[in-house]
Every structure is written in structure tokens, then in C-alpha cells.
Design a protein around this nucleic acid. Structure first.
Length: 435
RNA sequence: GGAGGGGUGGCAGAGCGGCCGAAUGCGAAGCUCUUGAAAAGCUUUGGGUUAAUAGCCCCGUGGGUUCAAAUCCCACCCCCUCCGCCA
């Protein structure tokens, strides 16, 4: 969440920043009214408390001195004040809860240099990279060969490596089954990406079911409750991304600055209900309820954040390049930025069979928005008060769409799939062909 | 799932219902001494709110009892041990 003090002290600047997201900023004024009322109520309560404490001390002292009547009188006065204390406390608590609830659903302030815009349509492609087997045309879009123009759902059936019907039988639509070399290709992708991060990023295997508090820390709750799978009986949530458990690794902790940046990487399944997205770009692997992803994550000082952001982006791009996929880097505009993010670059791989740019990675800088929710701080080296860390994360990659772009891009005239060089040892095949 | 034990500051570990935001030890920082280091001595050393080194809040979490709760009561969470079950 945003620092309430910043909203108080730099109200107009905060409003202007939120307005860039297309937010109705009148709610900020209401929030500030509640905030002022909260502090007033807390002040009243604290005064009464101080008085009660003072009287209580007197009761003890008077009793010890044998002045029973005096002690009784002081106790009686304190008792009366107790009613005020309870009332003021309830009042302050209710107001504080109201302020917190409002704060939890207010999105992060976009970075200065995030491009302005109202929607996805205003996102700004900033860079292209083209694969030798799928060069970009003059018009900025690849023009695939005929053998590359087959969508992955057809390729999957052709080669017996993707079985959507069986997936639907087991779990419903948007739950794919990978088979044979298709499954091995997926596993190879995961292993390859994980291994690429080497010693810079500590490999983590977190739980995929987490507590409510863990989901709140990243901003996935309370606002996006309909997107998440919930296990009612145990009150646990299925994570939509490894970002969720990784961000909470340091929850309620104070890290040493010398430990920053703390960089983590994890492979996990990810679960998304995709409520309301039925029928929209959901064919094949374009949008699924359960998928595999490798994530990069970091806690950093504010000074380190920009460098880490660039490093994550470079690492994600390196994976796509090694896989020989044509992609573009898109700078998300303020209107399309996720709630918690200040700046996000998406990587979109071109899927020639579908004829679409597919979002396969999202690399984001969250400033201290998540750290404030999760209460992750660091102790500055030169001394001074603990400060909130910055969190960053990036996918490297979301695999179903990468898998789709890969099989479409590397489809040969004979219908087989050329396995990218780097995956061959892991797939234990150079070509995936039928039979 | 059953039985028992336990959750206090960076760590370890005390804490008759009032003088406890908390002894003591370790660790860390500063100073003295020293050519330097070690040792020794002295001092400092949790977080939050706030303009504040005022007041208030925080001893797993949430309730309750009381003039007064780290301390008593209730519920929940977590950890440990044993039994059961199990990949």
C-alpha cells in the first residue's frame, strides 16, 4: 500500500499520480478525513489511558501506605474512565480499520517514466528481437513460412504431445494435459530456466498453498478474490504466481542491508480462476487455469531497484533468445499496470501459428508497495531507522504460452519440431516428430 | 488425529497482578588503555505512532477478568516430544 503519511503530506502529487491510472481520486479526500478522525480518536483514547495508568499507580501506592479509602476513591475514578477508554478505543479501532481497508485497494503510484495511457491499447512496444527462423517484417510483424502457420493446438494433436480433451475430462476446460515429448519439453524448459539463474538467484521451492495474509501481502487479496482458488476447509489459497510466497519469505522481518539485494528464483505451478475470461483468447494454451512458471524475485534497497529490474529483464530476454523465439518488449502504460506495480515490462513472444504476440513474461518493480503490506524492512548500513525494502519480480517464463510459441516457431516443413539447441540434452531428442 | 511441553528483545534466558518495554549472559556499536590487535573497563544497543528523547501501543494472535495484565481466564495459531496414520 501507499504510505499514508505521503498521502497526507503530498496529497496533490499522489492524486496526480493515481489519476494517471485513470483512478477516481475523490476517494483520497474521504480517506484523509477518516485518517484525521482516526488520529483524533486515538489521541483522546491515549489521554484517557495515561490517566488510568496514573490512577492505577496511585491505587497501588495508597494501598501500600494503608490508605484504603484513598485507594478506593482512585479506583472508582479509574473505573469511570474505563468506560470512556473503551468507547474511544472502539471508535479509533473502527476508523483505523476503515482507513486500512481503503488503503489496501488503492493501487501503487506509477513510476515517473511509465508511459501514460488508458488501456492495453496504449502500451508501448520498445524493443524487438527476431529469431533466425522467424524474422520480423518491415511492418514489425513476422511473416511465417507456411509450415509455421499451424496453431499449437493442431500441432499438439498431430504429434500427440498435447491432449486438451483429456485435460477437460479430468479437470474441465483450460486444464491441459501434456504428453510424451510434449511433457518432457515442458520439464526441459523449467529446468533450463532454473539452471540459467545460477548462483545469483537462490533456488527456492515454496509451498503452493498459502495463508490469507500471504495473499494480501502481494496485493492479490482483498481486491482480486474472484481470481483465486480457495480451499475453504483449510482456509488456504492456491498461489497465482511464485511471487506470492516469495514476497512473504521476509514478512515481518528486518533484513540487513548487507544481505541486499536478496535474489530468489522458484519454479511453481500457478493457479488462476480466470473468472470472466471465458471464450476470450482461451484456445489451446493461450489461457489456462493451472500452469507452470519460473519466477525471479528480489528484495532490494531503493537504490538497487533499477539495476535489478534491468537485470531481470535481461535474464528473461536471454531465455527467449536461447529458445530462438521472436519477441518484443512492451512498456506497460499507466492504465494497464497491475495494482501493485510501479513499472512493468512485458515480454511477448510471437506465436506464428496463432498469429499473435503472447505475453510470456512480466517484469515488475513494486517500489515499497508490497513491502509495506508485508512489512519487510532493512536496517540501513550507516545506521538509522529501518526502512521498507523494494520488491521486484519477473517471470522467466510462463511456460504454456512459451511452449506454444516454441512449437509453432520451430515447426518444420515435415511437421516435426526442431528442439532448440539448449534443450536437446534435457529433451534427449533433436526433433519431436509424430509416432 | 490423540497425549504432553512450549512461544518474552539479534540470540540464549529470567520475570510474587502494580516499582516491567522487561533482569542476566552472549552478540553488536562507540570510547578508554595499546604501536596495532586481543584482554580489560566504561557507555550505548528492539519496533511502531507522533513535530516530539512528551504521551500512547507492542512479551505468538484475538477476546475476557481487574482500578491495574508479560503475569489470571477463554479461544485460535505456531513450534517441540511421544503415539497413530502416511508419500
Amino acid at each position: 500500500m501507499i504510505d499514508i503519511r505521503r498521502i497526507r503530506n503530498e496529497t496533490e502529487a499522489v492524486k496526480a499520480a493515481l489519476a494517471r491510472r485513470g483512478l477516481d481520486v475523490s476517494e483520497i479526500d474521504r480517506l484523509l478525513e477518516d485518517d484525521a478522525a482516526t488520529r483524533q480518536a486515538a489521541g483522546r483514547r491515549d489521554e484517557v489511558r495515561a490517566r488510568v495508568k496514573e490512577l492505577s499507580r496511585q491505587v497501588g501506592a495508597l494501598r501500600k501506605a494503608g490508605d484504603t479509602a484513598g485507594a478506593e476513591a482512585a479506583a472508582a475514578e479509574s473505573r469511570t474512565l474505563g468506560e470512556d477508554e473503551r468507547r474511544f478505543d472502539a471508535e479509533a479501532d473502527a476508523l483505523a480499520a476503515k482507513v486500512r481497508d481503503a488503503l489496501l485497494v488503492i493501487p501503487n503510484l506509477p513510476a515517473e517514466d511509465a508511459p501514460d495511457g488508458a488501456s492495453e491499447a496504449d502500451n508501448r512496444p520498445v524493443r524487438w528481437w527476431s529469431s533466425p527462423v522467424l524474422p520480423l517484417g518491415e511492418d514489425g510483424v513476422p511473416h511465417p513460412e507456411a509450415h509455421q502457420s499451424v496453431p499449437h493446438w493442431d500441432i499438439g494433436t498431430e504429434l500427440g504431445i498435447l491432449d486438451l480433451e483429456r485435460g477437460a475430462k479430468l479437470s474441465g476446460s483450460m486444464f491441459p494435459v501434456y504428453r510424451g515429448l510434449g511433457a518432457r519439453l515442458l520439464r526441459a524448459l523449467i529446468n533450463y530456466a532454473l539452471d540459467q539463474q545460477g548462483d545469483d538467484y537462490e533456488e527456492i521451492r515454496p509451498p503452493t498453498l498459502v495463508r490469507t495474509e500471504t495473499m494480501i501481502s502481494t496485493g492479490h487479496l482483498p481486491k482480486f478474490i474472484d481470481d483465486a482458488y480457495h480451499l475453504e476447509r483449510d482456509d488456504l489459497w492456491a498461489i497465482p504466481t511464485a511471487e506470492v510466497p516469495l514476497t512473504s519469505m521476509g514478512r515481518d522481518e528486518i533484513l540487513n542491508e548487507s544481505d541486499l539485494p536478496m535474489r530468489l528464483t522458484a519454479y511453481t505451478p500457478c493457479f488462476r480462476r480466470e473468472a470472466g475470461s471465458a471464450g476470450r483468447d482461451t484456445r489451446g494454451l493461450l489461457r489456462v487455469h493451472e500452469f507452470d512458471k519460473v519466477e525471479l524475485f528480489a528484495y532490494a534497497t531503493p537504490e538497487q531497484a533499477a539495476g535489478i529490474h534491468a537485470d531481470m529483464l535481461a535474464r528473461s530476454e536471454a531465455v527467449l533468445q536461447a529458445l530462438g523465439l521472436t519477441y518484443r518488449v512492451v512498456d506497460l502504460c499507466t492504465g494497464d499496470l497491475g495494482q501493485s506495480s510501479a513499472r512493468t515490462f512485458d515480454l511477448e513472444a510471437y506465436a506464428p501459428g496463432c498469429g499473435m504476440w503472447l505475453e510470456v513474461s512480466s517484469v515488475s518493480w513494486f517500489s515499497d508497495y508490497q513491502a509495506r503490506r508485508a512489512n519487510v524492512r532493512y536496517r540501513p548500513e550507516g545506521g538509522g531507522a529501518p526502512a521498507f525494502v523494494h520488491t521486484l519480480n519477473g517471470s522467466a517464463m510462463g511456460w504454456p504460452r512459451t511452449w506454444a510459441a516454441l512449437v509453432e516457431t520451430h515447426r518444420r516443413p515435415d511437421g516435426g519440431i526442431d528442439v532448440p539447441e539448449v534443450l536437446r540434452p534435457l529433451v534427449r531428442a533433436d526433433v519431436i516428430s509424430a509416432g
